[in-house]
Simulated scan of single mutants.
Amino acid sequence: MDLELLNAERHLGLHQADASLERTHFVQIVASEFVTAAATCPIFLTKNSETGRFYAGAMFGFEPGENLLERAGAGRRGFLPLDVERQGYFLAPGGVAIDPGHPRFSAGRGAALFGADGQPAPALRRIQLVLGQLSAGVPETDAFIQSLVALKLVEPIDVDLSFDDGRSLSLAGLYTVSLDALGELDDAAALDLFRQGRLQLIYAMAGSLRQVPRLANLKNERLAA
């Protein structure tokens, strides 16, 4: 992938299509997205296959290529992960870079990246904001997860599903926060989580598990159709 640093002279006529969640079943998210995500879909921790480190992700479907919220219009519009919104864009030394081969870019269709005066258009200003949020959010979220691990609050979770067509599905490699272990923390540790704003993140994760049955119902509706 060859990246190009964005500049008005070279990319004045470049346009972008909307970012798409189509066929996306699991997306990495950062802590600032937890509360919004939890109202729409379950949030799990899982491990990076290369590093073995935990990261947080929002689940939109149970299998690769499956987004059960695609046709649940209000749900999909309610939460578009930053990591999806920045498709094709990257932070680079000197500014914002793009993958010119990414399918969302074209010369004339979609939202312009620059105005006629060469200044960033609203679409590009939004991307700059998104990249800034991700740049700050990834290390913040890593620190949150590391604190959960240090306090022994992370536990594996079995997600076993049965569907109306008789098929069953078991999801492996997923983790959540143990509210039982949270309740056993000493007062100092619990107060520290509260003061750092991490209790809200924990309860958002725990509450998001109520979205698993919702996704299962959407899958049954799709099977019936």
Rank of each mutant, 00 (worst) to 15 (best):
residue 117 D to W: 09
residue 91 L to D: 08
residue 131 L to A: 15
residue 101 G to Y: 13
residue 194 F to S: 08
residue 186 D to L: 02
residue 107 A to W: 14
residue 76 R to C: 11
residue 222 R to M: 06
residue 109 R to N: 14
residue 1 M to D: 13
residue 96 V to T: 02
residue 103 P to W: 09
residue 169 L to H: 13
residue 67 N to Q: 12
residue 96 V to I: 13
residue 212 V to P: 12
residue 138 V to R: 02
residue 62 F to C: 04
residue 109 R to E: 11
residue 195 R to M: 11
residue 179 L to I: 11
residue 70 E to N: 10
residue 119 Q to M: 12
residue 10 R to Q: 09
residue 152 K to A: 15
residue 79 F to V: 07
residue 128 Q to N: 08
residue 64 P to G: 05
residue 196 Q to T: 09
residue 197 G to H: 14
residue 69 L to D: 13
residue 2 D to G: 06
residue 217 N to V: 11
residue 145 I to A: 04
residue 93 P to V: 07
residue 104 R to C: 09
residue 167 R to G: 12
residue 157 I to M: 04
residue 193 L to D: 00
residue 132 G to R: 01
residue 208 S to L: 01
residue 109 R to K: 15
residue 36 T to W: 09
residue 120 P to H: 07
residue 130 V to P: 00
residue 93 P to E: 14
residue 112 A to G: 13
residue 58 A to G: 15
residue 208 S to Y: 02
residue 75 G to W: 14
residue 112 A to R: 12
residue 52 G to L: 06
residue 77 R to H: 11
residue 54 F to R: 13
residue 178 S to D: 08
residue 25 H to G: 15
residue 153 L to D: 07
residue 212 V to C: 01
residue 155 E to P: 01
residue 38 A to L: 00
residue 209 L to W: 02
residue 40 T to W: 03
residue 34 F to V: 05
residue 59 M to S: 02
residue 120 P to N: 08
residue 49 S to Y: 14
residue 178 S to G: 06
residue 42 P to S: 04
residue 39 A to D: 04
residue 223 L to A: 07
residue 172 A to R: 09
residue 43 I to C: 02
residue 153 L to N: 03
residue 149 V to R: 12
residue 176 T to P: 01
residue 194 F to W: 13
